[in-house]
């Protein structure tokens, strides 16, 4: 059941500012999970650049709009493991919904739209990357039927 009044679509020119704020919040949110997620000093400017790239296209990006306001976004790409039978996977790298609009299944709606686009681009699966200690995200994806697939190990060199 989706709350009425939410529309999910590609971001448009002129929306870079709003989108940049959400991108920044997504990164700031993840910062606490691992030192490797520490934000750069100019993270806010870079968020604006990222938003510009997102509007230009290439990656899979969708935004959720409520009452003319952008309240959430999803971003990812299609990864190809070429030796596999069904090697194309739509990978969600960023997903954020503004706290004031949570609990309305906007995240699920964004994922549905992402999956649709990934399928159009030849993927038969979608995946999500999350920091390993983000138990809230883990619960969220599990509830939506995702299962544990790969683990990323990291070390300083």
């Amino acid at each position: 059941m989706y709350e009425a009044g939410v529309s999910v679509r590609k971001p448009r020119k002129g929306e870079e500012g709003e989108l940049a704020r959400l991108i920044y919040r997504f990164y700031a949110f993840n910062e606490e999970f691992d030192p490797a997620w520490a934000l750069s000093d100019d993270a806010e400017e870079r968020a604006t650049e990222e938003a510009r790239r997102a509007v230009e296209g290439g990656d899979i990006v969708f935004v959720a709009e409520v009452d003319g306001q952008i309240v959430g976004y999803i971003r990812g790409y299609v990864r190809e493991l070429r030796l596999l039978k069904d090697g194309k996977i739509g990978v969600i790298t960023e997903l954020y919904v503004h706290p004031r609009f949570r609990g309305r299944r906007i995240g699920a709606l964004l994922i549905d739209r992402f999956a649709e686009e990934a399928r159009e681009r030849g993927a038969s699966r979608i995946a999500a990357e999350i920091p390993s200690s983000n138990i809230v995200a883990e619960r969220f994806y599990s509830k939506l039927g995702f299962r544990n697939f790969m683990i990323t190990y990291i070390k300083e060199v």
Partner: peptide, 19 residues
């Protein structure tokens, strides 16, 4: 607010419910 989701989900819930 996002940090509260982890450090104190009870405060987080109140923030969202009361707006």
């Amino acid at each position: 607010i996002d940090k509260l989701l982890f450090s104190n989900p009870y405060k987080y819930r109140i923030a969202l419910e009361t707006g």
